[in-house]
Design a protein around this nucleic acid. Sequence first.
DNA 1: TAGATTGTTAATCGATTAACAATC
DNA 2: TAGATTGTTAATCGATTAACAATC
Lengths: 212, 212
Amino acid sequence: MNRESQVSVTVIRRLPKYHRYLTELIEKGISRISSQELSVLTGFTASQIRQDLNNFGGFGQQGYGYNVEDLQKELGKILGLDTRYNAVVVGAGNLGQAIANYKGFEDAGFKVLSLFDRNPRVIGLKIRDIEIRDMEHIEEFIKEHNVEIGIITTPKDSAQQIADIYIRSGIKGIWNFAPTDLQVPDDIVVENVRLNESLFILSYFLKTKFDK
Amino acid sequence: MNRESQVSVTVIRRLPKYHRYLTELIEKGISRISSQELSVLTGFTASQIRQDLNNFGGFGQQGYGYNVEDLQKELGKILGLDTRYNAVVVGAGNLGQAIANYKGFEDAGFKVLSLFDRNPRVIGLKIRDIEIRDMEHIEEFIKEHNVEIGIITTPKDSAQQIADIYIRSGIKGIWNFAPTDLQVPDDIVVENVRLNESLFILSYFLKTKFDK
DNA sequence: TAGATTGTTAATCGATTAACAATC
DNA sequence: TAGATTGTTAATCGATTAACAATC
C-alpha cells in the first residue's frame, strides 16, 4: 500500500478544483497564496484545505502560505498529470468526436489514437487527424499501440460488451459515458460520467425551488 | 420551506441511480423488490436505501418490499421528470450537438429548442430539426419561447458572459459544461458537468494503482 | 398465523470545523 | 523580533450502519 491510496475518495475528488484555481493563479502571475485566500476562491474552508493538502505532505510554510507554482506542480503529480496515456474511443458519434477534439484531454496527458465504430458511414473519416476505424480491428490496435485507456461513448446496450473487449485487450482504465454500471475485474479502473444523473439533479433543484 | 429541500444533497444524488435500476426492473417485468435486492443492484446498503426512501415518505410495505412501478414513478416525480422544460444550448460544437441529439435529454423532460453560436459557418445548420442560430438573437428567443434552461458548451473564457446573458434573459437553471465556476444569483440553479475533473480522477487512480 | 421486510431509533463511523502550538 | 499562517490535535457535525419493534 502506498500513502496516497489511503487518502479518502472525498479528498481526492477535491484535488482537481485546487489544481484548476492554482493554474489560474499562475496565469495571473500570483506566486503565493494562503489557505484563507484559497478558501475564498474554492468555497472550501481554510481548515479543510490545510487538512486536504496535508494528506500528501507539508506543502506550505508557516507565516507565508503556499507557493502557487510548487503546489500546482505537486497536485499535478499526485493526479498523475505528468504521466502520458494512450487512449481510444468506441462510439464515433458527436460525443466521441467531441472528446477526440477536446483540448483539455491532451493537457491531462491523454492522447486519443483512434476512434472505433460499427457504422460503415463513418469508418475512414478523420476527426482532426484521428481516424475512425472499424470495430473489427480494435483488439489488435490496442495491443499494437499500447493503449491503456478505453473510452465508451456508445448507447448503454453495447457498453458492457465494449468494456469486455477493452478488458480482453489489456486496457487498464475505462472512461464510461454510457448510463450503465460496468462489471469489471478489480484491477481495472472505471470512471463514469453520468450525464443523465447530472440532468436529473438539475431537474430536482429546479422543481424544488420553483414548483412548491 | 417544503419537505424535499431539507433532504441532504448526498441523498438527492443517489436518487437517479435508484430511478435507473427501477426503470430497468420495469423493462424486465419485475414488479416487486426488497431493499435487500436493491442493495445488490445498486451497491448501497439495504439500510441506507430504506433511510433514503423514507426521506420522502413510506413507499414500502412491511413484509413485502416496494412496488417497482410505484416507486419508480414516485422517484420520477421527486426528481421533477414529470415537468417539461424548454432549453437552449450555447456552443454548437461537437458537445453542443451531442446534447441536441441526446435522447435521454428529452426523456428527462427537457426539450432543446435551438442552438446558438457566433461562428457564421455553423449558423443556419440544423441538428435533427434543431436550428443553429446567431447569438445576436438569443435574448429575444429565450423570452419569446419561455426557455427556462440554458446549457453552456463553450470554452471556459466565454462561459461567464453567456451565464450573464442567460440570467438577464430570465432563465432559471444552467447546465454548465465549461470548466469554470459560474457566478450567479441565489435563485438560479447551476449544475456543472466537470469532464476535466472526471478525467483527472481517472488519471489519479491509474497512477495510484499501477505506478508505485 | 408465521414469516418477511419495512420504518425508525440508536450506535458507529467518517468527515468537517475549530483551536492553537509550532515555526517561518 | 512580531506577525502571520501552517500543521495537527481535539471537538463537532453529519452520514452510514445496525438493530429491532411495528406491521403487512
